[in-house]
Nucleic acid binder design. Structure first.
Lengths: 330, 330
DNA sequence: CCCTTTCTTGCAATCGATTGCAGCAACCGG
DNA sequence: CCGGTTGCTGCAATCGATTGCAAGAAAGGG
């Protein structure tokens, strides 16, 4: 049922070369008669060229690999939508992988995508494959870091300003009169998003003359008992560095019978569909997720097409969406 | 920097054939000496075979295409996670496309995936490409419908029982003493998920002797003014057939100054990370999303491997998660 | 020691495209 | 009528693997 160029050629009474030239749009010097003939046969057979063969010969697949560290995080849904949109626009296809923050799996995927000869890779990297990634970049392979950077690796990357994001939260809370602000984040060594957000928090506090800060870290797999932490620092506000973690923290605070924002104010990370429907509606740091996806994809496509990018890193700007969860009640 | 089998062969002093046989694990009759020699060269060069060439020759790519109708819906995130997991387990890669419920885009993606010679396709189909899909199935192409069926097409599909899902909601609400139950759904012609849920609702109501029902339909792009609808039917409970739509409805009801569940109870569709954090916590119909993804993927892989599936359709069972939004207050 | 059988390995065709080079036909002017 | 252009098309090599067939080497039997 599947036809080849050979078949089309035979039925049109021409050679493969001619068919190929017509289909690839190399309009140069093909008589209108043969062109019509060939196109009608193509139509009739419903022929479509085998992309594998084409890719093999052309040494390009028009496929981009995407490696995410945690597919379950709803944040990626919007990013993914932007990535898909850009891919579609430029005629690329997307191959998706989920490393689950596992270094070995990530490595296997990188190799595997390369074996499949993807033209470029978008990656939200783990911290476990530094040398491999560095090597890849060094060899000129089109690679773009998505939302995370890796210490010590100069790479094209598209990220959102994490320090600024947290500082928006800090400034807002200070404006509302809160002073004892704690931060809750994930306990994952070396992940730039978390470390930068923690730094942003400390900087922000320091600027207001506060050096006694509280950073609470939750291991992704374990529970976090807020009770002793709360007792020790007695915060009047909490900033959380991740969307799902925010829900977790809210739940734990409720268990301590703390009212939001009366006893403790909350600012969460990532604007989500549900943020405004929580009780009380949640103040969030909104990251431009779709743009993140779009721009990163456009970047990798530019690299593929041989363009030099003017900047190694594109840094997007977060906003704060203020809702009741962080507004001082009288 | 990229080596070919030829290079490996030359450096090992053997022919391509031998290298190929060793790497493809065809252990039959290769002397241990040459095997070791070749493997060491492979190691040294860091050689990995070109999958394009292999795929071309073998006429299989070990890639599965996934076409979703609406990537933005958080429901898919969990499904996707299940799909990815199964793909990974069986050594397949995933190519993702988003039709955005657009028939033309869907068609283009189907053709394009076929051109790329994916081994099989998982699709959450729109209603616009019946003949094409039917034809595909007829030719024996491994295709599995995901979460939706298409009227008039017998296909392998994995779905969740939609009638039963809604009826769980109806029964629960009746148990709580609600009688004037309205349903809100999307106004999309012919989409099985919506039509089946509407039917389930009507059946459930009829069984309780209620023939006067209210189905409110929201066009995906337009606003829905609940005020007149509410006035007309005066429901004491509302079931919503989609997760994001549920948030929308809750917002509109709030604008009408209706208290939940005091004035009107709510049951939403899809168990989400945020459901239990809403105010009040939301009762939901929980679909086994990850299993949906896993099983559909396993099905298409079986089809690819030539197995006959014992049943055309696998129907999974939803559950109800009861929370305060649908519990009668005294 | 020769012939047969069993291991190993290589040759060359194949998968389905793309493309440089060359050849043939038609057309032109002189 | 002939040589030179120009226009159109085909031949055959190539991309990087896989694999049927056959040949050469090694081993075994008489």
């Amino acid at each position: 049922m599947k036809f080849t160029m050979e078949d089309v050629a035979k039925l049109s009474g021409v050679s493969k070369s001619t068919v190929s030239r017509i289909l690839s749009g190399k309009t140069v010097n093909i008589s209108e008669k043969t062109r019509q003939k060939v196109l009608s046969v193509v139509q009739e057979l419903n022929y479509r060229p085998n992309e594998l063969a084409r890719s093999l010969k052309m040494a390009q697949t028009r496929v981009i690999g995407l490696i995410l560290s945690d597919l379950k995080n709803p944040f990626w849904m919007t990013v993914l939508d932007g990535v898909e949109e850009a891919c579609n626009q430029f005629g690329y296809h997307l191959m998706i992988c989920n490393s689950g923050n596992n270094g070995d799996k990530e490595q296997e995927y990188i190799l595997s995508l390369q074996q499949r000869r993807v033209d470029g890779i978008l990656i939200n990297p783990t911290v476990h494959n530094k040398e491999m990634l560095a090597h890849l970049i060094q060899t000129g392979f089109p690679l773009v870091f998505l939302n995370r950077t890796i210490q010590g690796i100069v790479a094209n990357s598209v990220v959102v300003n994490n320090r600024q994001g947290i500082r928006l939260a800090v400034e807002h809370l200070f404006g509302q009169g809160f002073r004892r602000i704690a931060l809750v984040t994930y306990n994952e060594e070396g992940v730039s998003t978390w470390t930068e957000r923690v730094e942003g928090y400390k900087e922000g506090m320091r600027e207001h003359g506060i050096n006694s800060v509280a950073v609470w870290r939750k291991h992704p797999e374990a529970e976090l008992n807020l009770s002793p932490l709360y007792e020790e620092y007695q915060p009047d506000a909490v900033i959380v560095t991740n969307n799902v973690l925010t829900l977790y923290v809210i739940e734990r605070l409720r268990e301590l019978n703390l009212r939001i924002p009366g006893d403790v104010a909350i600012v969460g990370y990532d604007e989500t569909v549900w943020a405004k429907h929580l009780a009380p509606p949640l103040t969030t740091i909104k990251q431009p997720a779709r743009e993140l996806g779009r721009i990163a994809t456009e970047s990798v496509i530019k690299l593929i097409q041989g363009e030099k990018l003017s900047d190694d890193a594109v840094t997007l700007t977060p906003e704060i969406v203020v809702r009741e969860s962080s507004v001082r009640t009288r």
